[in-house]
Amino acid sequence: MAGLDDVFGDLFASVDAVVLFSPSGSYYERFSAVEDLDVIVIGTENPVGAETFVELPLAFDNISERIRFGLEGALEQDIIEDGDALACATSVFDDEIDTVSRVRANADQHTGIYDLFAKSRADPEVIKAVLELAIELGKKGQKGKPVGALFIVGDAGKVMNKSRPLSYNPFEKSHVHVGDPIVNVMLKEFSRLDGAFVISDAGKIVSAYRYLEPSAEGVDIPKGLGARHMAGGAITRDTNAIAIVLSESDGLVRAFKAGELILEVDPEAY
């Protein structure tokens, strides 16, 4: 087996750091016991209490997405530098870590996914909750039929001033926050209403039934997307909000920030 070590040794020879994706406690201990080794932990939470930790907003199923997002976050936090060689240990089949891949950090591949969560006006937890909500809605639909939905998160005061009500606001004088247990069911029912949901920085659902009136000038979103995406994308250019859109036609969840498409996920993949 010594021969195998030589061959596979290339994978982790002279790496700048080891990146562990959601390691178990004992696994992490073994790595942190190795001297002169930079260990970075990436995951949805940090149960092992690692010092260098990058938070993932979603437990990405797709390995390359998981690694790309994690490394972008690490680059953003100046934990790693452009061109660093990294040994990324992650799990593909089971919960245990079973795969090592050698990745070179590339700052040019900047997509802004990490910025979407960490550098938006709204709280990262709120954005995460809305994204999960949209994904869940996309997975199940309304009574088995696909639904579309448009969530505008953050900078709610400005968004409210750049929109008008289509009908009475069902959330008026209510104190519903995303992440409350009842919200998923409630929003699923309300998703058949037209218009956008407006959610404040702290996660309060301010209004449903909003007709957005941004100027669509200079909005660069892929051709072929409908009015919902256009409205969502455009309002993020006019305000500091972000838009999370569930497409009715192709079932994908997309996120816009500053008028640009940042993230595209398939609900079926989660």
Partner: peptide
């Protein structure tokens, strides 16, 4: 303020 909402998000 939360109960009566004399002003709400978006008001000036």
């Amino acid at each position: 303020l939360l109960l009566n909402q004399p002003y709400s998000i978006g008001d000036e």
